[in-house]
Nucleic acid binder design. Structure first.
Length: 821
DNA sequence: AACGGACGGGG
DNA sequence: GTGTACGTCCGTT
């Protein structure tokens, strides 16, 4: 059912396996493919630094579970073998497979015509209108034309190319507003990795048409393989298209050999939703790449990016130049009018950072495009399971002439139990170790040969095994190469790409009806084994006398006996690892001076270097008044080092700072996002007042839009004061103008400083906030009476008080040696 | 506390 | 003519 025997093909046919991974046609240098449903394709290849194009033909194809919708074709539907004798409108190949599987591979000269005929037949059969093959997805499986071409030919992008061989061009529009209805393009910065760096300017509205035409000309002249920017699909391209439309300028960006115009198409959201479809764009011969997609994928794995904005991301990766120009978005055009050179520098810094991001993040998608039968631009934004893994599986089945399994027959429904989560103890632990079972789910799939039962060829398990081995080779090669070298970069990209696919395999099996090769029995078996492994690790640690704190899916936190060295810790982890089955390894992840365990997945870690890390919503607050955050961090440090007198002192100092108004108002301000428009709030105001809006109204602001972030604090008497931000989070150009006018009237800089520094806040209110929003998060670190005593607001000594020096946090500690076994 | 919906990003 | 992001944060019940 779930544990497949190893299919003979994976053992014996090594060549087939490589075809499953990398395709089989060795055509080098493909940098772009354009194809349509009529079976025409144009392939651009980079050969010795020059780009050649060739026109190709392919036969459009799709998978079907039966021929029933094509019976109306009569003798015009022929089998592939009959084709030699007589011509057909459509022909088919019967494939090996289980009943109900996609056992027919249908071909036609025109994919469009074939589809229309299928829809006609289906309408007759079902007696209702069918608009698209997607309404018949249990009966047909189809991919886009470029994918059809790549899967059929076994070609992939980029064979024999290195990342730097690609000609990449970055462009960045500077506009007078975010909305092309209300603003226009006044500058575009363009650079490429062949030395181009220029801007096109349009100081006056009348210059915009020339700018757009000039941009098209420049792109065609430079002839890049790839066009990149941050939020290219969300901003630059829609803006450019809207302005070109408004001015009647064709966006001729295509490469010689294919259609010239930039095309827009919609990526429909699921269901009948009225959510606006995400627009995508394509142009023949060039790959359009949005670094925002790459950033999202990176953060999906690392989960440690504070934001996905270009400037923040550039700083995060350390690729922002030290003298980089920063301008608030709303000020860019005004600055341009005063100082165009400054804006030019700013725009260059933007495109340079995009190039940096591309080098840093797009190596892995580049490598993936050398494996999966999909265009590079789709690989960049594709999810690794449905977007990469499934096309590879489909290509393998197509190549083998095997039927695709049907997701309906193959769907095993029922409750799905995921990874195990245990909270063993709350409180404070010292000398904490984190250990993880390396690549838990893929390792389990491999070790116990748990793959989808419907994957008769065993492709998924083969890919997981082979990629795991290849990845280790690339990791080793990356380590062996000179740091920072092209060689190292190549191997690192390869290993990252392989990791992405390996990690997608388990999730793909559990993907339910969407995935062709889903098998929830197999997915359940993986998590069941995973829970078993984790339980085993936990038990081994317990038997060795460790103090368990929490365990989650594939990792465990525990405290070791006081005074252990790092090598003792590592030895322990290695010893536990040795008790696991082959290929399942427990890895030493890190060590911490202390840990405060609050709830599952909610904890604080204190590193030996002194860094404090907070995890989980329970320890964070979205309101985050600065004084409270600061108190909490200091309080956690003292608590986690057992310095309760220090904790008490920090608390008393904060209380005192509030009472004596030593803190400025800015330190007390909460930051919230507005959800109600000004008119909406005005209508509900009589029944329920809300602080953030009251603060705006009190400041004389009567107009705002949802989404704006505002800071405010509570004043004596219960009124609220708005603290405007210095860099406008202005959603709206018009309002920005109003603000400028108002600021000029009342000397804004002076005002702002005065506001930030005000002392007229409601002290009693903020004392309550200190205790009920911040101190309360330390509750689980103390016995109830100790907690109450430590954070009492009236500083009187109670009758039954423990002297502070004698209070201890709730320690999580190892059993003493003699109790251990 | 549990649930549903919007947002992210760009000038 | 397409592939179904997804996790987090906010506001409401």
């Amino acid at each position: 059912m779930c544990a497949n025997p190893v299919p003979p093909s994976t053992q014996t046919v090594a060549g087939a396996g490589d075809a499953w991974l990398f395709g089989w046609d060795q055509t080098p240098g493909i940098v772009s493919v354009w194809a349509n449903h009529e079976g025409r394709a144009v392939v651009w290849r980079r050969v010795d630094g020059r780009v050649l194009h060739s026109r190709e033909r392919f036969t459009p194809w799709l998978f079907a579970t039966s021929l029933q919708d094509l019976t109306h074709l009569g003798a015009s539907l022929v089998s592939e073998t009959e084709l030699a004798e007589r011509d057909g409108l459509a022909w088919y190949r019967m494939l090996d497979g289980a009943p109900g599987a996609y056992r027919y591979l249908l071909f036609a000269r025109s994919g469009r015509a074939l589809e229309r005929r299928i829809l006609m037949g289906a309408e007759q059969r079902l007696g209702r209108t069918i608009r698209s093959l997607y309404d018949l997805e249990d009966a047909y499986y189809r991919v886009g034309p470029v994918e059809q071409y790549l899967m059929l030919t076994g070609r992939v992008y980029f064979r024999g190319l290195a990342y730097d061989d690609l000609h990449r061009l970055q462009l960045d529009l500077e506009t007078t507003a975010l909305d092309p209805q209300r603003g226009r393009i006044f500058m575009v910065a363009v650079r490429d990795n062949r030395g181009l760096a220029t801007t096109l300017d349009a100081p006056a509205p009348a210059d915009e048409a020339d700018l757009i035409a000039g941009l098209c000309g420049l792109i065609c002249e430079r002839d890049p393989d790839v066009i990149e920017n941050h939020n290219l699909f969300g901003f630059d391209l829609p803006f450019l298209v809207a302005r070109a439309d408004a001015l009647g300028i064709p966006l001729a960006l295509g490469r010689v050999g294919g259609p010239t115009l930039l095309e827009r198409y919609n990526e429909m959201p699921g269901g009948s939703g009225y959510a606006q479809p995400r627009a995508r764009y394509r142009v023949a011969g060039r790959e359009l790449v949005d670094t925002l997609d790459a950033v999202r994928r990176h953060d999906f794995v690392t989960r440690d990016m504070p934001s996905h904005r270009l400037k923040d991301v550039a700083r995060y990766f350390g690729i922002a130049a030290t003298d980089r120009v920063y301008l608030a978005g709303a000020d860019v055009f005004a600055t341009y009018r005063q100082n165009p050179a400054l804006v030019r520098r700013y725009a260059f810094d933007d495109v340079a950072e995009v190039d940096g991001l591309s080098r840093r993040l797009l190596g892995a998608p580049f490598a993936l495009a050398g494996m999966a039968p999909r265009p590079y631009e789709r690989v960049v934004s594709a999810g690794p399971a449905m977007g990469i893994l499934e096309p590879m599986l489909v290509r393998a089945y197509l190549h083998a002439g095997a039927a695709l399994p049907n997701r309906v027959t193959n769907q095993a429904s029922g409750p799905h139990a995921g990874g195990a989560v245990h909270l063993f103890a709350t409180g404070v632990a010292e000398q904490v170790v984190k250990a993880d079972i390396a690549s838990l789910y893929p390792s389990l799939m491999r070790t116990f040969q748990i793959g989808p039962a419907c994957d008769r060829l065993g492709v998924l398990l083969y890919l997981v095994s082979r990629l795991t081995d290849l990845r280790l080779e690339h990791k080793a090669a990356a380590r062996a190469a000179a740091p920072g070298s092209l060689e190292a970069g190549h191997h690192d990209s390869m290993q990252a790409a392989m990791k992405l696919i390996i990690n997608a395999a388990y999730g793909y099996m559990g993907a339910g009806t969407m995935a062709l090769f889903a098998d929830s029995y197999a997915a359940d078996e993986v998590t069941r084994r995973g829970r078993e492994m984790l339980a085993h690790v936990v038990e081994e640690l317990r038997q060795r006398g460790m103090a368990l704190i929490e365990a989650d899916t594939d990792g465990v936190f525990f405290a070791v006996p006081p005074g252990w060295t790092e090598s003792q810790e590592r030895d322990l982890v290695a010893a536990v690892s040795a008790t696991l089955p082959p290929r399942i390894r427990l890895e030493y992840e890190g060590r911490y001076r202390a840990m405060f365990s609050h709830e599952v997945k909610n904890y604080a870690l204190l590193k030996y270097g002194g860094e404090l890390i907070l995890r989980g919503v329970a320890l964070r607050s979205s309101r985050s008044e600065p004084f409270g955050e600061q108190f909490l961090r200091a309080a956690l440090r003292h608590t986690m080092t057992g310095d309760i007198a220090g904790l008490r002192q920090v608390y008393l100092e904060t209380v005192d700072a509030l009472r004596s108004r030593a803190l400025p108002a800015a330190a007390l301000a909460a930051r919230v996002r507005l959800s109600k428009a000004s008119d909406v709030y005005q209508s509900t105001r009589t029944t329920q007042r809300e602080a953030q809006y009251e603060a705006l109204l009190a400041a004389g602001r009567t107009h705002w839009t949802p989404g704006e972030r505002v800071r405010y604090y509570r004043k004596k008497g219960g009124t609220y004061v708005w603290l405007p931000d210095d860099d406008g989070d202005a959603a709206d150009h018009q309002r920005e103008d109003e603000n400028v006018a108002r600021r000029e009237e009342s000397s804004p800089l002076l005002d702002r400083a005065t506001l930030e520094d005000a002392r007229d806040y409601d002290v009693e209110h903020y004392l309550q906030v200190l205790v009920s929003s911040y101190a309360v998060r330390l509750r689980k670190a103390f016995a109830p009476q100790d907690f109450a005593q430590l954070f009492r607001l009236d500083a009187q000594l109670g009758l039954f008080d423990t002297p502070v020096e004698q209070i201890e946090p709730c320690w999580i500690r190892c059993r003493r040696r003699e109790e251990a076994d």
